[in-house]
């Protein structure tokens, strides 16, 4: 019994130490609110794993193109903090995490894909997953060849053929053109599939089908790491 307690205490100490290191490593790159959200995500999903297994966590928090560009820097900073001296670490942010969770709930904490990105307005998991998958796929395509804007514009001009509901069409159009940061509920599954497929077809034309398959697959895997995918699997959108 004593040995069990001592093991738990050692585990708690290790988690606390790693939490301080994650906090220290992320601090130069994120504003305070997003930093605590990221720590909540780490606490909920990654604190039990090995300290060096950072890629999944980084995938979840570096979702926007600017963040992806500095992903390697973030990684380096985290490793330095995790494996550096204790006296270089910030104090334990546990209280701040608990306070953040009490105002945002656990669901927000476990959805790291929202960090620094468009915050989905939808309460519908299907819409959230669609938005995340679409955005991530387009950003991956854009990294290979800067055609993201062209893809959005093409889909926008063909929306009328796809969407029968006028107001929804207008809202989706605004979202595609970046005038609305959020996508409201209103699209049904078939319409989501069609929009995503239009993006895929254009990606095939510009990058080739093998590359398009690979990027779409990467985007799907990225979405599957997010907690919301448990409520709506992204593969349903393919």
């Amino acid at each position: 019994m004593d040995s069990d307690n001592s093991s738990l205490e050692a585990l708690d100490a290790r988690v606390a130490r790693n939490r301080r290191a994650i906090y220290t490593g992320l601090k130069p790159f994120f504003p305070e609110d997003e930093l605590i959200a990221a720590l909540s995500l780490w606490q909920a999903r990654y604190s039990g794993g090995p300290a060096y297994a950072l890629h999944g966590f980084l995938n979840e928090i570096c979702t926007t193109p600017p963040l992806r560009k500095i992903r390697n820097d973030v990684h380096r900073s985290l490793r330095q903090a995790l494996f550096g001296p204790d006296n270089a670490l910030e104090s334990d942010p546990l209280l701040q995490i608990e306070r953040w969770k009490s105002t945002h709930g656990n669901g927000g904490a476990s959805s790291g894909g929202n960090l620094g990105a468009r915050h989905s307005a939808s309460s519908n998991p299907k819409t959230q997953v669609f938005e995340s998958l679409f955005e991530h796929f387009l950003s991956l395509v854009d990294e290979k060849q800067p055609i993201g804007l062209h893809l959005r514009s093409y889909i926008d001009t063909h929306l009328e053929k796809v969407l029968s509901n006028g107001p929804v069409s207008v809202q989706v159009s605004r979202w595609l053109r970046g005038k609305d940061a959020r996508l409201d509920d209103g699209l049904d599954l078939a319409e989501m599939r069609t929009i995503l497929h239009m993006a895929y077809v254009l990606a095939c034309e510009y990058l080739g089908p093998a590359m398009a398959d690979s990027l779409l697959s990467e985007a799907v895997q990225h979405c599957e790491l997010q907690a919301i995918s448990r409520l709506f699997p992204p593969r349903k959108l393919l």
Binding site: V201, C204, E205, Y206, L207, G208, P209, A210, A212
Partner: peptide
């Protein structure tokens, strides 16, 4: 042709 077999500018693309 298959989807993406030829680029928009007509270039041929090998699909392995």
């Amino acid at each position: 042709p298959r989807l993406g077999r030829f680029g928009p500018d007509g270039t041929s693309r090998t699909i392995q």
